[in-house]
Every structure is written in structure tokens, then in C-alpha cells.
Design a protein around this nucleic acid. Structure first.
Lengths: 145, 145
DNA sequence: ATATCTGCAAAAAGTTTGCTTTTTA
DNA sequence: TAAAAAGCAAACTTTTTGCAGATAT
């Protein structure tokens, strides 16, 4: 379904318009609240379904990368991660951390910056082979980036 | 409680040991399964509570950055984000994306890399002031990095 | 003794799904 | 009139919480 064409229904159009109006990166629930002002009869299920559908097609983007299940790491030294889009596997990455990024941001931002995290997205060795033919049943956020 | 000393109870010790054994970045539930092999009477609530307590103190790290609520962005161009540790606010960041990172990883990894995402962590302008005195009630993952 | 921690179970929060009706091509 | 989408509500998953009993200082 990720590659399928999509109908721009009124619900989807309004969701998209409202999402484009704000810079707050709202949660699904917050989108629901925004959209409901214009379409009081829309259901939360529709909002979820359409946010998912639109992010699969790259019309919008899901933030966070996590498939909404927290993961834990005993290694507290600074390092980056790769996440497999297909099976959800997470690995450490052999790239040295990029402190330049943080320095650059400190100059440009009003935030008090404590750190940063980098997550690469891709297909892990097993899934990149297995998935070459049946690229359809990717579990989560295939269109994320 | 983020700065409080913590007792290394048997449950915490086993959670930590099991987490250190694996490189799989397990979910809370997966940690529960690992730990239960050695402490069959431990409860999932305890695992959650202790993972949280230990990550608050920097003994372990939560991955994902997201406080387990997906957020959406209508801007699908490549850009990075900052997240406020205190209030959860997410902003765009005025740092150009760092393609070098991706190139470096492609050489070193067996993953098929599709992209990457950077999330900075810090305190937003409002919270950095408000929080200077009462630095105690940070909602999530204060010790994340 | 007193504060801390655990187990248990219930609740909350976030998300997905099944089914029926409505809309659109 | 057939396919796609919406509305609704129930189910499911993940995480949090209240409380009584256990542990440890």
C-alpha cells in the first residue's frame, strides 16, 4: 500500500492543511483536536489511519523513529544507532559522534542543548535481501524518510 | 528523584546485568523476559519502574527520544529537530543536514541506509529559565544523554 | 522504625482494527 | 455498483499507578 495512489478526501485535505499550519509537530491526538474544529464529526480512528497513510507516501513525516516501544541500552557512552525499517532491529553504529553538530546548534538556538542523538534508517542485512522482492509488508513507517 | 542515590537491589542488578549482556537494545518487555529467567517472580511493573529509575540516573539509556507518542510533521524536507526534555516541545533546527554521516556509515555498515534523523535534546527557552531552580519535576528521561 | 522497594492488579494512554454505512468514481 | 474511505466502538499494546506486604538500613 505504500506505493498506491491516494484520494485526497476532505478529511485528508484538512488534516494536511492543519498540519501545515503549525510548527509544533503535533501528536495524533493534537491533530485530531485541530481537525475537529473544522470537521466536528471526524473520528480519531480516521485521523490515525490517514496520518499513517500519508506518512507511508511521504506526504508527511512521522517523527521519533521509534515504533512506539521504548528501547534500552546499557551502553551510556555517546554513540549512534541504525534501525531496520522492516524488522525493527536496532544496532550500534561505527561512526564517531559528530560534536560539530552540537556546537553549530548552540550558536543558533535558544535551547540549552544537552546532547543529541542520531538514528540511521535502513534495512538490516537479513531484511535487505528478503525484502528485495516482497517490499510490501513492512511493518511500520515505511515512508518515514 | 533524578539526582537521588539509588539502591542496587537484586532486581536492579539483574536488569542491569542482562541489559549489559545483549547488544539488541531490547524493549521493556524483552528485558522482562530476560530477567524473568533469573527472577521468575519479578513483575513487569518493577521492570518498568527500574528501567526508568536507572535511565534517570544515567546508568542506562532510553533510545528513541520520543516519549512514546508519535509526532507528525508536514515538512518532509530533510531537517533536524530539538526536543525539550521538560515540556516535550519539538522545534525545527537551523543546522544543515550532515550527509557526511550517511556516507561514512554506508562504508562501514551492512545495512542498506535510507536516511538518518538527528534529534537534539535540551531545555526550551521557557523551561531553561523556569527549571533553573526546581530541576526536579522533569517528566521523562532526564538522564537520557 | 522508617524509608524504600516489590509484586500484583487495575487503570491509563496511545494506537489499531472490525464492521457497517457513506461517499466517490 | 463496486471500490475506497469514514465513523464508531471495541480491542489491543505499552506504560503507569495505587496499594499492601516485604526488605533493608
Amino acid at each position: 500500500m505504500a506505493g498506491t495512489e491516494i484520494k485526497l478526501t476532505e478529511q485528508r485535505r484538512v488534516i494536511l492543511e492543519e498540519l501545515r499550519k503549525v510548527r509544533t509537530h503535533p501528536s495524533a491526538d493534537a491533530v485530531y483536536d485541530l481537525v475537529r474544529k473544522r470537521l466536528p464529526r471526524i473520528s480519531l480512528g480516521t485521523v490515525y489511519r490517514n496520518l499513517e497513510a500519508m506518512s507511508e507516501r511521504g506526504m508527511i513525516r512521522k517523527l521519533g523513529g521509534c515504533q512506539c516501544q521504548m528501547r534500552f541500552d546499557a551502553d551510556v557512552t555517546n554513540h549512534y544507532h541504525v534501525r531496520c525499517l522492516k524488522c525493527g532491529r536496532v544496532d550500534d553504529v561505527a561512526v564517531e559522534t559528530c560534536e560539530v553538530l552540537e556546537r553549530a546548534l548552540r550558536e543558533r538556538s535558544d535551547y540549552a542543548i544537552l546532547g543529541h542523538h542520531v538514528e540511521f534508517i535502513g534495512f538490516c542485512p537479513s531484511c535487505r535481501c528478503a525484502g528485495e522482492d516482497e517490499r510490501s509488508d513492512q511493518p511500520e513507517g515505511a515512508g518515514e524518510r
